[in-house]
């Protein structure tokens, strides 16, 4: 995470890939316990990763990373349960021991994210699709869409923020 703060993409990718299974285990455990549908596990994982990314400056270097990650996941989980009509109080401390990795769903789709991408505006959607689903680099996308690389990065950043907002506001 510290390396990510300096813009080290490789270290950041490694970190997110390591955290994803941990978040999956966390969400699965919570869902089992509170009887929510297990299909939504991947949505929680993705919402948490997105929120972590957008709020990464709220982590203070030298503090342990996992409590911070857990707090974000907890917030996203509560939002999710609230939206699905359950009013549960989920004591965060119970997750202390269940940060167990769970790789079972790494191939699964996050359905909410697909819906949310569909709601983005034209150019934001193009950039997100190209850079995530199609895995293109900022330079490729810039050439294809006739934009500068910097502009593509700005659009990507705005698109990620919109995505987070749509995920938060527009669900049933």
């Amino acid at each position: 995470m510290r390396a990510a703060g300096r813009g080290d993409a490789h270290a950041y990718r490694d970190l997110l890939r390591k955290l994803a299974p941990i978040l999956r285990g966390f969400a699965r455990h919570a869902f089992l316990r509170y009887g929510s549908s297990a299909e939504d596990v991947e949505d929680i994982v993705q919402e948490t990763l997105l929120a972590m990314h957008l709020k990464r400056h709220t982590w203070i270097e030298d503090r342990p990373l996992l409590p911070w990650v857990r707090a974000i996941a907890h917030n996203k989980l509560m939002d999710h349960l609230r939206r699905s009509g359950r009013r549960q109080h989920l004591p965060i401390d119970e997750f202390g021991d269940v940060l167990v990795a769970d790789d079972s769903q790494s191939a699964a789709n996050g359905l909410d994210a697909d819906v949310a991408i569909g709601k983005l505006k034209g150019r934001q959607r193009d950039v997100v699709v190209a850079m995530s689903l199609e895995g293109q680099s900022a330079r490729d996308v810039a050439q294809r869409l006739g934009m500068t690389e910097g502009a593509v990065r700005v659009v990507l950043h705005r698109a990620l923020r919109s995505l987070s907002k749509v995920l938060r506001d527009d669900q049933p």
């Binding site: 813009g7 994803a20 790494s106 996050g110 850079m131």
Partner: peptide, 19 residues
Amino acid sequence: MKTDDLIEALVQDVARPQR
């Protein structure tokens, strides 16, 4: 969207400094 795809998009955005 697969989680790995999302991670790719996030990684592409990491260079932006945050205040």
